[in-house]
Design a protein around this nucleic acid. Structure first.
Length: 580
RNA sequence: GCCCUCGUAGCACAACGGAUAGUGUACCGGCCUCCGAAGCCGAUGAUGCCAGUUCGAUUCUGGCCGAGGGCACCA
């Protein structure tokens, strides 16, 4: 990507310069998009950063840097100084045109980072208890985790998505008891429903199925638990599928316990001296314990001899490391934030680098209905399922709604509002732009349009057909399939065309930001900007015109927009309809 | 009480410590004999309060006010 190239050239040119100034190395500087209204493509803050160590004014330093760089930045057309001392660069048209060609040649590889394939990442998300259907709040974690996985995959990492099924412990026990109680009710017996049981109606339905499939003598608690968990897990998987989320791996907590992995890792902790027994229970004592870290100390084995969630979680995370992953990403609800230091502490105690574990906390979704807070509890049975919302507002609107926000903002989701004002969701703005471009291609394929008149031209160089097919197998069948001409991208020189090319070239950089910040929301903002520029271009210039070669070039440009748009939307789990 | 996150326009959200704080919606005024008006152009409108660090603070630090969430031998 062109920003990488610019950075390489800057480093090469300024490394020696920095040494001459007595600096050990160049500080890590930013290359970013200047604010609107600045006549430059890339801004660099190097002079501002160096002002203090070199005790010179930023403007004077910028001037010095400009002189040093003048002859050594071939990717750049113009270097200027603005504001407090920004070094601004302008791309020559040919650089942008070359980048456009790169995009058209292989969109699906555009943005891939070298060397990433070697790194194995395990991203765990949703992991809701298999005790009931997913509710809307889970949707946020699902959307976040899935999109992040898609983005990391696109960058080239080897990504595995995993769902941790909490199918051991009190909650599923309670589900089993609730199920048996409902069965007894159906048989006409009067029973007292478990106090902390699951009151949702879905348990009644489950009971009917259970009774139909399992003969009475076999209806033990264990059987009820495994039956209910299996059904609920299947249900969750179906909901996620409808939400466009696919998991690679479903990891069972019960299986972890069964294999004795909890004993194994707790024993390892004990040998390292991090385990104590007190008050009839077994405790974890965090490494380098200080008074203020007391809260990291937690019970591993309860007085009744059962493992706590914390104990199994230690084993689970250790197991993830042992499975050979370089990086672990956990997507948790913000209500688990106090839990992060404990898990990291335990990993450190076991000898794993805690920095290889990244926990992304997403704030909870505050559900309201007409402004009134809606209670979300599986046990009480009062909750709005993800499925309900999907049915009402649709997958695309829902995915985009969650994906366009950073994980750290508590967001309000008003059910009635979401149902009424789905048009408020900017996802339609993006989909409309995509459909509009597809429509132009359909138009271009018609007889008498500027595009098809060139069919007899010699087929030298890349053709729209060839490059489109390579980049997107979906295309090339009907809409651009008939277009055949050499494409001269150097014809693209209007301001609006240039702006579009520039925006397209920023795609890889944007994905890096997502990766660094652990959030897909920059994709949403990027796509909105891209579409705005496309519509602006569309408003100023005709794509299909009398000038055949220009028509071809513009078809190439908007095809790149279309493909990046489609790719970006797919990273958010949103579809890109060809018409709407 | 202690800890975490968040306070940006009527509403919902953006902005690695940078330049004129962006976008969508809502409201107001324009634009379809021409590739999709689910669009475009224009106008109005915002960093909770008070200090501090800095050449420069929406961003970092402290305090205050407000919202949400944690502080289990639950998961």
């Amino acid at each position: 990507m062109i920003l990488d190239e610019l950075r390489r050239q800057l480093d090469a040119a300024l490394g020696p310069w920095a040494k001459a100034q007595g600096l050990p190395e160049l500080p890590s500087y930013a290359l970013e998009e200047p604010p609107a209204g600045i006549e430059a493509d890339v801004a660099c803050n190097l002079a501002l950063l160096l002002a203090k160590p070199l005790r010179k004014s930023p403007r004077a330093l910028a001037e010095e840097l400009r002189k040093t760089l003048e002859k050594s930045l071939p990717v750049v057309e113009r270097i200027s100084i603005a504001g407090a001392g920004f070094l601004n660069f302008n791309w020559p048209l040919k650089t942008l045109q070359a980048e456009l060609k790169t995009i058209l040649t292989d969109t699906l590889q555009y943005g891939r980072r070298p060397g990433t394939a070697k790194q194995k990442i395990l991203i765990e998300f949703v992991s809701a208890n298999p005790t009931g259907p997913l509710h809307v709040g889970h949707g946020r974690g699902a959307a976040l985790g899935d999109s992040l996985a898609l983005i990391l995959s696109h960058l080239g990492y080897s990504v595995t998505r995993e769902y941790y099924i909490n199918d051991a412990g009190n909650q599923v026990q309670m589900l089993g008891e609730s199920l048996l109680a409902r069965c007894a009710e159906l048989e006409g017996k009067t029973v007292s429903f478990p106090e902390n049981g699951y009151h949702g109606d879905y348990v009644k339905g489950l009971a009917q199925e259970f009774m139909a499939e399992v003969p009475a003598p076999a209806r033990t608690l264990d059987k009820a638990i495994t039956y209910a968990v299996a059904k609920m897990t299947k249900n969750i998987e179906r909901d996620l599928q409808a939400f466009g989320v696919r998991l690679d791996s479903w990891f069972s907590e019960a299986g972890l316990v069964r294999q004795g992995l909890v004993e194994k890792y707790i024993e390892r902790l004990r040998q390292k001296g991090f385990v104590e027994e007190a008050e009839g229970a077994v405790w974890f004592v965090s490494p380098g314990e200080k008074e203020e870290e007391k809260d990291k100390n937690r019970v591993l084995k309860k007085r009744d001899g059962k493992w706590t969630y914390f104990a199994t979680d230690i084993a689970y995370h250790a197991d993830k490391f042992e499975r050979g992953y370089d990086r672990l990403i956990d997507v948790w609800g913000a209500d688990h934030h106090g839990y992060v230091p404990r898990v990291k502490g335990s990993m450190q105690a076991l000898g794993y680098d805690p920095n290889r574990l990244h926990v992304i906390l997403n704030q909870l979704v505050a559900l309201t209905r007409n402004g009134v807070p809606a209670v979300m509890s599986k046990r009480s049975g009062e909750f709005v399922t993800l499925r309900d919302v999907l049915d009402e507002v649709g997958k695309d609107a829902c995915r985009f709604f969650f994906a366009m926000r950073g994980p750290n903002t508590a967001l309000d989701f008003d059910l009635e509002l979401a149902k009424k004002h789905t048009v408020d969701n900017p996802v339609y703005y993006l989909q409309y732009a995509h459909a509009r471009i597809c429509s132009i291609f359909r138009q271009a394929a018609l007889p008498n349009s500027g595009a098809t008149k060139t069919a007899e031209q010699p087929n030298s160089g890349s053709t729209i057909q060839q490059i489109s097919r390579k980049a997107d197998p979906m295309l090339g069948r009907s809409d651009v399939g008939q277009i055949r001409s050499t494409v001269d991208l150097t014809l693209l020189k209007e301001k609006e065309e240039r702006d579009l090319m520039k925006r397209l070239a920023l795609f890889p950089q944007m994905l890096l930001v997502c990766s660094q910040e652990g959030s897909p929301h920059p994709v949403a903002n990027y796509l909105l900007a891209l579409c705005r520029q496309f519509h602006h271009f569309y408003d100023h210039h005709r794509v299909l015109g009398d000038d055949k070669t220009l028509t071809q070039a513009r078809l190439g440009l908007i095809n790149a927009v279309r493909q990046i748009l489609k790719l970006g939307l797919s990273l958010l789990g949103v579809s890109a309809p060809e018409s709407m």
